[in-house]
Amino acid sequence: MNFERITVNPAQMGGAPCIRGLRIPVATVVAMIADGMNTDEIVSELPDLTVDDVWEALRFAAEAVRERELPLHHAA
C-alpha cells in the first residue's frame, strides 16, 4: 500500500511515522480517534492537518497492525 502523506525521518520525532513531514505523529491522530474525536474535531485541534491526512493516518495504522499480525489474547 502506498502512503503519500506519511513520512518517516530519523531526525524528526525519533523516526516515528508523521503526517506530511509535520511534527504530528500518526499515533497522535489515532489516539485522538480512540478518544472519541471525529475528523472535523481533529482538524480543528490540529489545523495543519486535513481530513485526508486523518484518514491516511488511520489506513497507515491499520496496515501496520495487519503487517505485524498481532495476536489477541483473551483473558481466561
Results as ranks from 00 to 15, higher is better:
residue 59 R to M: 11
residue 3 F to N: 00
residue 68 R to T: 12
residue 54 V to S: 10
residue 68 R to I: 06
residue 32 M to P: 01
residue 26 V to E: 00
residue 2 N to H: 09
residue 43 V to S: 00
residue 57 A to H: 10
residue 16 A to S: 10
residue 52 D to H: 12
residue 33 I to A: 04
residue 25 P to L: 02
residue 25 P to W: 06
residue 65 V to P: 03
residue 59 R to E: 15
residue 76 A to H: 12
residue 54 V to C: 14
residue 42 I to E: 01
residue 11 A to N: 12
residue 6 I to F: 01
residue 60 F to V: 07
residue 75 A to W: 13
residue 10 P to G: 04
residue 55 W to A: 12
residue 30 V to S: 04
residue 18 C to A: 03
residue 69 E to N: 14
residue 7 T to S: 11
residue 47 P to L: 10
residue 47 P to W: 12
residue 76 A to S: 14
residue 72 L to P: 03
residue 70 L to R: 15
residue 4 E to N: 05
residue 35 D to P: 01
residue 15 G to E: 05
residue 9 N to E: 06
residue 25 P to S: 09
residue 58 L to K: 12
residue 12 Q to R: 13
residue 43 V to N: 01
residue 32 M to W: 08
residue 3 F to S: 00
residue 10 P to R: 04
residue 71 P to L: 11
residue 49 L to A: 02
residue 49 L to R: 00
residue 68 R to N: 13
residue 15 G to Y: 03
residue 76 A to I: 10
residue 26 V to S: 01
residue 54 V to W: 07
residue 66 R to F: 12
residue 61 A to N: 14
residue 7 T to D: 06
residue 4 E to T: 05
residue 8 V to K: 10
residue 4 E to D: 09
residue 5 R to Q: 06
residue 26 V to I: 08
residue 72 L to N: 08
residue 8 V to R: 08
residue 45 E to W: 06
residue 44 S to C: 12
residue 26 V to T: 08
residue 33 I to D: 04
residue 36 G to I: 02
residue 21 G to P: 06
residue 31 A to Q: 11
residue 40 D to K: 13
residue 73 H to R: 15
residue 17 P to W: 01
residue 14 G to H: 05
residue 47 P to C: 07
residue 23 R to P: 02
residue 51 V to Y: 07
residue 4 E to I: 03
residue 56 E to G: 04
residue 27 A to V: 08
residue 27 A to N: 07
residue 46 L to V: 12
residue 41 E to T: 01
residue 26 V to R: 00
residue 57 A to I: 01
residue 30 V to H: 01
residue 47 P to K: 09
residue 19 I to M: 08
residue 23 R to N: 08
residue 76 A to T: 10
residue 11 A to G: 06
residue 22 L to S: 03
residue 44 S to I: 04
residue 75 A to C: 11
residue 64 A to Y: 06
residue 58 L to Q: 14
residue 46 L to Q: 11
residue 59 R to D: 15
residue 49 L to E: 02
residue 29 V to E: 03
residue 76 A to P: 15
residue 73 H to Y: 15
residue 43 V to I: 14
residue 48 D to L: 13
residue 65 V to Q: 14
residue 6 I to D: 00
residue 59 R to L: 13
residue 14 G to I: 05
residue 66 R to P: 00
residue 66 R to G: 06
residue 69 E to G: 14
residue 17 P to R: 03
residue 1 M to P: 03
residue 67 E to V: 11
residue 26 V to Y: 00
residue 73 H to P: 04
residue 37 M to L: 14
residue 50 T to D: 13
residue 28 T to W: 04
residue 43 V to E: 02
residue 37 M to D: 06
residue 42 I to T: 03
residue 11 A to V: 05
residue 37 M to N: 10
residue 52 D to W: 07
